[in-house]
């Protein structure tokens, strides 16, 4: 029997998700053993045209990381969708837009202008901008055009499963890959479409070992301003922790290292918008019934949008700035 085919792709991503796959250590040998790798730009030199030549649905599993923000990203996402039986949005970028999705707080013009002209590190007076098409002696050169709005994979093509995290934790990846191999080897049924794999059905707080006392707070602190108690809930100490609005699965990695959860596992089950959930969570620990005082206390949160939507802006209710 021929081996099932596997593709791994990166679109608008940082490469961390690819590294996280390699980080499963010896298990990567099982992957190489069981699957026939047909595409993995980060790790090996496959050609798009060879993948394009494959029949539809001939790739058993595609792990797609990265958000979609260019014509090229969309083209490859569609192509891999056609060719794959199971399409997985792998990591926060593909699932929720993640850090690339924060580009949605600006227009593309603003971003290009800053990056190529006005950033302090640019030589002043420079006018060089990337052009989608350039004529050279040998003919026309093209590069993909960026979009004004960064999108999640599921906003562009049909997605079967999600593996959240920035990046997904390697033990979770290993467990999911182990489960997939078991399913394929033993002809077991696939989980229902849309299932979030490699994570829990609860929030990050549920995995957090810190003590909670429903203490009410009257002031917020940036992480550098105080030395937090290592055993008490950070939110109750006035440090914005996204644990209540984040899916569990990482084992509360950051929180156990005395850093607030930044929300990389995306929304927990039953929550649609991470920012809205964080507003409720914050409101429930603030100790005041005086509107003016509340306003003052909330000012202690420097950047609500960037803090609450750090990983899920592109998949939030509003998705981008509406200005």
């Amino acid at each position: 029997m021929p081996k099932p085919k596997l593709a791994v792709y990166w679109a608008a991503s940082c490469g961390g998700c690819d590294i996280a796959i390699l980080d499963i250590e010896a298990k990567i040998l099982d992957v190489a053993d069981f699957f026939d790798l047909v595409l993995w730009p980060c790790a090996a030199d496959f050609k798009y045209k060879d993948v394009e030549a494959l029949p539809d649905k001939s790739i058993t599993l595609t792990l797609f990381n990265g958000a979609i923000r260019s014509d090229e990203n969309l083209h490859i996402a569609r192509m891999l969708r056609e060719k794959s039986v199971v399409m997985v949005a792998f990591g926060s970028c593909a699932s929720d837009g993640c850090i690339p999705g924060l580009a949605n707080l600006y227009s593309l013009d603003e971003i290009m202008d800053y990056s190529y002209k006005s950033a302090p590190s640019m030589e002043s007076g420079t006018k060089t901008m990337p052009q989608p098409k350039t004529q050279v002696e040998e003919g026309e050169l093209t590069i993909p055009t960026l979009w004004n709005t960064v999108r999640t994979l599921a906003q562009c093509v049909d997605v079967d499963y999600y593996i959240p995290g920035c990046p997904p934790q390697s033990d979770q990846i290993a467990a999911v890959i182990g489960a997939v191999i078991d399913i394929l080897k033993n002809n077991k049924p696939l989980p229902p479409k849309g299932t979030v794999l490699g994570a829990t059905e609860k929030s990050c707080c549920d995995e957090c070992p810190r003590e909670r006392n429903v203490k009410k707070i009257r002031e917020f602190h940036r992480p550098y301003e105080i030395i937090p108690d290592p055993n008490i809930c950070l939110l109750e100490q006035g440090i914005v922790c996204c644990g209540p609005a984040t899916r569990g699965g990482c084992g509360a990695k950051c929180v156990t290292a005395n850093m607030a959860c930044r929300g990389c596992y995306g929304v927990p089950p039953g929550v649609r918008d991470q920012g809205a959930k964080m507003v409720s969570a914050i409101a429930s620990v603030v100790d005041s019934t005086d509107p003016e005082e509340i306003e003052e206390i909330m000012k202690g949160i420097a950047d609500p949008v960037g803090t609450f939507y750090r990983f899920t802006l592109a998949d939030s209710f509003l998705r981008r700035t509406q200005k």
Partner: peptide, 19 residues
């Protein structure tokens, strides 16, 4: 009181999202 605490922060979310 709960909604009283949520609205100011919701205002700031809206502002950040260009509404």
């Amino acid at each position: 009181y709960k909604v009283m605490r949520r609205i100011p922060l919701t205002h700031r979310l809206l502002e950040g999202m260009g509404i």
